[in-house]
């Protein structure tokens, strides 16, 4: 097939700093996004995702400067998500140096934002984040619902149907996070990812639940993910990107 499955470390950013802990052994300042991004870039990460977890307007301005600083040092694709609410927000992040923006809650409140942004900047830079939780269905025929606000607010939308609709609207990629698995370290919800991957027709990034390297393999083989996103297994030095790639290659997965 040719194209390699991607490994994407995800960094949570608050007020210009990486938060939730990133502890490379020999990094002096564990909170500096530029230094951490540069390290992942050199270590063989295929892309980077910044998730803005701030709320205030002032802090968002800081994020623009952070993205600018990182984009000067990092020569792999950079996705910025969190708080993107308008075409103007998309433009601001792209101008700062982001290659893609991830749209989540705003897409639910205003689905035309995805088609407008894709028409304006191209599908290649529009990622739609789908936060899904099991809801109804049966064990053999599960259903998932889209949630917002970190999994607290139900929307009534079927996650698979929603993902397909967003791909049709112009999303070039889907970032699918299982709210059931997020933070559990028991692996991706591969049934969720596989169902969406088979139906949406655009690349899928699996997210939520990675605890070990086998989970990355399962995400690709069982979940049919085109890319796997992980945070803690890399941030705390448990595994390097190179180890993850070697492990995936041993399982027969094409990696860079």
């Amino acid at each position: 097939m040719g194209v390699a499955r991607r490994i994407i470390p995800c960094l949570d950013i608050n007020a210009g700093r990486v938060v939730k802990g990133v502890q490379f052994v020999d990094i002096r300042d564990a909170g500096d996004p530029v230094e951490i991004a540069r390290r992942y870039d050199r270590a063989g990460a295929d892309e980077l995702t910044f998730l803005d977890i701030t709320a205030s307007h002032e802090e968002r301005e800081t994020l623009v400067h952070t993205v600018e600083a990182v984009a000067s040092e990092v020569f792999i694709p950079l996705t910025v998500g969190g708080g993107i609410r308008s075409v103007a927000d998309v433009r601001r992040m792209l101008n700062a140096g982001a290659d893609k923006v991830s749209i989540n809650t705003a897409a639910i409140h205003e689905p035309s934002l995805v088609s407008d942004a894709a028409a304006r900047f191209g599908s290649q830079c529009i990622v739609v984040a789908v936060d899904a939780k099991r809801s109804g269905g049966t064990e053999s025929d599960p259903r998932w619902e889209v949630f917002t606000h970190g999994g607290r607010q139900p929307t009534g939308l079927d996650a698979v149907e929603w993902a397909r609709r967003m791909a049709d609207a112009g999303a070039g990629e889907l970032l699918v996070t299982s709210m059931d698995r997020d933070g559990t370290r028991i692996g991706f919800d591969n049934a969720l990812n596989r169902t969406i991957s088979e139906q949406a027709g655009v690349p899928l990034i699996a997210s939520g639940g990675v605890g070990n390297l086998q989970h990355l393999v399962d995400g690709v083989i069982d979940g049919q993910a085109d890319a796997v996103l992980a945070a803690s297994i890399f941030h705390f030095g448990e595994h390097t990107i190179a180890e993850a790639k070697a492990y995936m290659a041993d399982a027969g997965i094409e990696v860079r």
């Binding site: 097939m1 194209v3 390699a4 991607r6 295929d46 088979e198 027709g201 690349p203 085109d226 860079r256």
Partner: peptide, 13 residues
């Protein structure tokens, strides 16, 4: 082929 996603996105030889 539905197995080939479009866009072609990622690292290729």
């Amino acid at each position: 082929s539905p197995r080939l996603k479009i866009p072609h996105m990622g690292w290729n030889r």
